[in-house]
Write a protein that binds this DNA or RNA. Structure first.
Lengths: 252, 252
DNA sequence: GTAGCTTTTTGTCAGATCGACAGAAAGTCT
DNA sequence: AGACTTTCTGTCGATCTGACAAAAAGCTAC
């Protein structure tokens, strides 16, 4: 309030990335092996400090996305701020965590500068067997929870798919992220009925195994109406992912 | 990657607050008159720099909440990070914006240290007639949009109410934040059917004008199931707030 | 080239939900 | 006592949802 001689403390700002994608039928997160000082050898989220005084935070996140994962043009949003005083032994470091959603990729991370990056199933990454640097386990959990929630009421699922996709590909996104199984026929009807969610992408088709499927692309609408409610009427998946998916929806 | 002699740039961290409440039938935000250097005399969000090297960010937000608004025990969540390089002429300042939801208050902000704080209807604050400091107009808009969205699928609406509340009080929250009118009878049924949203608070009643209403308190569930969908079937409100509420839900 | 397999797409049907509205219940005010 | 206000309980038809049947449209194997 008054013009004090007091000076506010300065902090170091880092941009970290929770990059999620689908590999097979499971949700994966990108992790790197730390080569330097704190938590050396442990797994960590890709990220780094602001390059200079004038770099925008989201620009820094996109730079790391490109440098450490070789990714561009993917969905990117701010996830949260993690700045607990004791989290970094080097001093007061505040991490602005970002959530990035990447479509299925041809090769893991080959050809990138950071060849020490690897995709890991999120359930493995969050299991106690893996040592993650800093509070990155917390950040990953928050990112996954954000993705789970946003799948319900936004068109985020399309960010997991390529430019065009089939409805069953979209269904696999929901099944993998939510860890449940859905009825293909009801899913088909529901997705088609959510106005502006997906639009037909030409009369072309793509071959796989059964009947060729229609292709769609992401529609103009970001907020789904009606939403894709994750109700209690779901068949639990065979995998161990089903447990975590139930949290937050039930009561006694 | 390598141990460079390079040093990452330091920034100043501020915690700013979008404090929303209901006054009458309208959504209000708390603003303060800036007394110092940049944007002196303009209206701004309450907030300030970290006090010292060891203060947690959320702790700083709660401290400002108490100092500048005299509020404690209100809903508080991180809204986002606003750190555009040019936003503060004093240097690189990164603001961690928080969204706080306060129940209806007996008196505006009287008795507080910061007597220069005032509640303002959000539509007034966001109209072009008001000069807001920094990018605070953007932050307020993001906060309101966050509240609108979270009202749909979380129990956030109860944060606008006191410890106990009637169903029509809860309905006023939805009507004010969404800027629409809802049918009391359908709202009653819908809220009662959303499991864990609200629970009866004793057989007591409260007097007003008509038939005494039952009292409820916030239930254990945070994620609403089914959600309170803000569908297209709504009667537009008389006020000028109805326009902004429609955005993001429609397509052509 | 036809039978079998797989996957997509179109239906069907009963139960749940929703929006619009009627009307009873339970207070206050005049 | 009667008017008025607000809360609460229903009702009704349209829509939506979940479970399931079956047709459509490709491929593979024989």
């Amino acid at each position: 309030m008054h013009a004090d001689p007091w000076e506010p403390p300065a902090v170091l700002l880092a941009a970290d990335l929770v990059i999620l994608t689908l590999r097979g039928a499971r949700l994966h997160v990108l992790l790197v092996h730390r080569g330097i000082d704190p938590y050396q050898g442990a797994l960590a989220l890709p990220g780094g400090f602001l390059r200079d005084e004038h770099e925008d935070i989201e620009a820094a996140a996109r730079r790391e996305l490109s440098e450490e994962a070789g990714l561009a043009d993917v969905h990117l949003e701010t996830l949260g701020v993690y700045g607990e005083p004791g989290r970094d032994p080097r001093g007061r470091v505040v991490s602005v965590a970002h959530l990035a959603i990447a479509p299925r990729l041809p090769e893991p991370t080959a050809g990138t500068d950071a060849a020490d990056a690897c995709w890991m199933p999120v359930e493995d990454a969050l299991s106690s067997g893996v040592e993650l640097a800093f509070d990155h386990a917390r950040i990953i959990a928050d990112g996954v929870e954000r993705a789970r929630t946003k799948l319900e009421y936004t068109a985020l699922a399309t960010a997991f798919c390529g430019e065009t996709f089939t409805i069953s590909e979209l269904q696999q996104v929901y099944e993998a992220v939510w860890g449940i199984r859905l009825d293909p026929r009801n899913f088909y009807r529901k997705v088609q009925g959510s106005r502006g969610f997906i639009v037909a992408a030409g009369p072309m088709r793509r071959t796989a195994n059964g009947r060729p499927a229609r292709l769609f692309r992401a529609g103009p609408v970001q907020a789904l109406n009606p939403p894709m409610v994750r109700s209690a009427h779901v068949t639990p998946q065979d995998g161990p992912a089903a447990q975590t998916a139930a949290e937050g929806v039930r009561q006694s």
